[in-house]
Design a protein around this nucleic acid. Sequence first.
DNA 1: AACCAGGACGTGA
DNA 2: TCACGTCATGGT
Length: 231
Amino acid sequence: MSGDRKDPLIHIYYTLYHLYGPQGWWPLMDLEGGNPTKTGSTHGYHPLNYDLPENPKQQFEIILGAILTQNTAWTSAEKALWNLKELDANFPEKLLSLDDNTLKEAIRPAGFLNQKSRYLKNISRFFLSLKDGVPTRKELLKVKGVGNETADSILLYAYKQAEFVVDTYTKRIFSHLEIIDEKDNYLKVKNLFEDSLPREFPLYQEYHALIVEHAKRYYQKRPYREDTLLI
DNA sequence: AACCAGGACGTGA
DNA sequence: TCACGTCATGGT
């Protein structure tokens, strides 16, 4: 890898991958034999299988999870997902048929139930309108409840599009490493990664998941350790 | 007992 | 464009 010295983003990727291995995102409820070493959920991961999701139902589950986990621990979002599954509302027609109160109670563990219940119905209608097509980023952003990160998460993990996902962990780690500035906006950071990395969706999937794993281990509480990774 | 979680939206500079 | 308040619950 001649680019390692030159490009810290690629080098950090290999460092994280060597540390934690393939992550198997996005977790899916119905998969057997998850990886219990994960800091978050204890199941649903599928390391080295980049064929998932394989059907619209799994795609839709990822989309629901992307909304539910907004500013919320994945373990909480997952409880909401299981509740929806118990209601057989893990597909868009049924979810849209739920009355608002039922939906809100189901997703209560994930918090922000008033707005997220609306967001889930919005994205459900959008999903149904798609038929078999892949949505554009711009289309996704028009759905109320889908911002930059959620749009990229949906494209990257539900539709296998090479869109780099930037979250608070990404900003926290890479500003701490002084590779970006804390004040850099979403698109600036996203473009930095995309300009530095090959546009390959498995790489983007792993990189974002590795960032989350690393941040959960070392970037939760301040002060962050100075010797936690590096470079 | 503050603080944080795999953010987004509305508002007013 | 950008900073700020708001939204809710659960874990540490």
